[in-house]
Design a protein around this nucleic acid. Structure first.
Length: 457
RNA sequence: GGAUAGGUGGCAGAGAGGUCAUGCGUGGGACUGCAGAUCCCAUCUACUAGGGUUCAAAUCCCUACCUAUCCUCCA
């Protein structure tokens, strides 16, 4: 498949460094709060991408880091009067629960930064030895001027970067863009022993220490949302390539767009966000995933209630067509068609820079074909169509596969049979009441010529 | 100031030189006890502006304007 590589600014065929195996790393969350829908967008993207790469025949190893020590962790800890380790542990667990609820289950290893302190120190030691880092009274810093390719990923030129307003005058940095590798301990802060005294790792170094542990000095794909491109990903590249001397840290860099909310980027620091778990209370994970994936992954996506609803309508139609496949009459329709072409079109859309929007458009076309057939498809065609839906579902997780034949479904079927008795007697007042009560309980029923269908809403 | 990505029908959003994107919405009809779902017809000849290249441009080139994001923690 081809994918847009931020590093080269072109769409490139993915050719892994090791035949048939892809090593994928994605920046995970800083666990000091619940994740929001914008975070979820990124994780759903890479979850789906990892699954698609697997389906495309690659053996994928998907690694994600967990930032479990950070200024924000400490701030939350001191505000709530809870040890920082409890804050991290709690929100790490909540993050995992959220991912589970979202069906994002393709990560092989979640690596917590604090479990890699030795590896982090080893990297810092090597950077110091090679002259890429220097020590000051408050920490160890990476000297950006020593790394020629600094800024290559984002296109930024060091001398044009406006230094942040938060750079305090007391800092002894050689260049305003120098970033911290090791933060020396301040009173009351947690710390680990090191050649540079007690302290804790900087944010950027944890990722390269973790990826080096698992993948070595170079791997295939690095993912993340585009807000991490500068300076975080630049810093990672600077650190690892300075150590390794290799051409790449990762050969392909994939950046996802933002989820915007109320005109602005969804962001924890501005308070402009919807928590994923809040969204999951109102909507199904299928609806959330479809909404997040029904857009170009690198473009920003606007969230509004209306747009979300429209997306749900579209998904509903796909879902209804899929369900219709279960009840086909087994007779050939006048308009037989080949569902296989939709599957191959979906695959080529995905092969083309993971164009999920077009892939879904084809799925919608397939759905229209099924509706147009009026439910009269040969079993063979129905089976092939079902295959297409299942393929899409295994990668994107957008279809509801309610267990038909479960105890619950038998109970619901019983109620529907009861309602049918009233309908036969033309007691519509009672039958409508049953329908209304079922609807309020989350079961929608629809009368069709072939019988009454039901589904969860 | 620098960097990056963009400007497509009522809305969202694909396409990347010549043929229907798709979905949501809207109007009408069919079906139905009603509702829903679905179908049919209609609505829509849309591509920021101005130049150019070409037999042909939403798609390529130039100019202008506009938007978003990053340069500070951020998925």
């Amino acid at each position: 498949m081809k994918i847009y590589n931020t590093l080269t600014r072109t769409v490139e065929e993915i050719v892994p460094q090791r035949q048939g195996r892809i090593r994928l790393f994605v920046c995970g969350p800083t666990v000091y709060n619940y994740i929001h829908l914008g975070n979820a967008r990124t994780f759903v993207l890479f979850d789906s991408l990892a699954k698609y790469l697997s389906f495309s025949g690659f053996e994928v190893f998907y690694l994600q880091n967990i930032t479990d020590i950070d200024d924000k962790t400490l701030r939350v800890a001191s505000e709530s009067g809870v040890p920082w380790t409890e804050v991290s542990q709690k929100f790490y667990e909540e993050y995992r629960k959220d991912m589970e609820a979202l069906g994002a289950n393709s990560v092989n290893v979640y690596a917590k930064a604090t479990l890699y302190i030795e590896e982090i120190k080893s990297q810092i030691r090597r950077l110091l030895k090679k002259g890429f880092a220097y020590e000051t009274s408050d920490g160890v810093y990476f000297h950006v001027e020593k790394f020629r390719d600094m800024g290559a990923l984002s296109g930024q030129k060091l001398d044009k970067v406006v230094p942040g307003s938060r750079v305090s005058p007391s800092e002894q940095k050689l260049n305003p863009s120098d970033f911290v590798l090791w933060k020396k301990q301040k009173p009351g802060e947690p710390a680990w022993d090191s050649p540079w005294g007690y302290g804790r790792p900087g944010w950027h170094i944890e990722d390269t220490a973790i990826t080096e542990s698992f993948f070595g000095k170079s791997y295939d794909i690095h993912g993340g949302a585009k807000d991490l491109m500068f300076p975080h990903h630049e810093a990672e590249i600077g650190q690892m390539r300075s150590i390794s001397g290799k051409k790449y840290l990762a050969k392909y860099w994939i950046h996802g767009g933002y989820l915007n909310f109320g005109g602005d980027k969804m962001s924890k620091s501005t308070g402009n966000f919807i928590l994923l778990r809040e969204a999951l209370r109102k909507y199904s994970r299928q609806q959330i995933r479809f909404f997040l994936l029904n857009a170009n992954y690198s473009s920003d996506l606007l969230y509004t209630e209306d747009l979300f609803k429209a997306s749900c309508e579209a998904l509903d139609r796909i879902q209804t067509a899929y369900e219709m496949l279960h009840g086909v009459e087994g007779q050939s329709g006048s308009e037989d068609f080949d569902p296989g072409i939709y599957l191959s079109r979906i695959r080529s859309s995905l092969d083309n820079n993971f164009d999920t929007r077009s892939a879904f458009a084809y799925l919608q076309e397939l759905s229209s074909m099924i509706f147009r057939s009026g439910g009269k498809l040969s079993p063979e065609i129905a089976a092939r169509a079902r295959e297409t839906y299942m393929f899409v579902d295994r990668i994107f997780g957008i279809l509801k596969n309610d267990a038909v034949g479960s105890d619950v479904s038998r109970a619901i079927q019983g109620i529907i049979n009861l309602r049918e008795e009233f309908r036969k007697k033309r007691d519509f007042a009672t039958s409508d009441m049953i329908r209304k009560i079922l609807e309020e309980s989350g079961v929608r029923i629809e009368d069709e010529a072939s019988g009454t269908k039901w589904r969860f809403v």
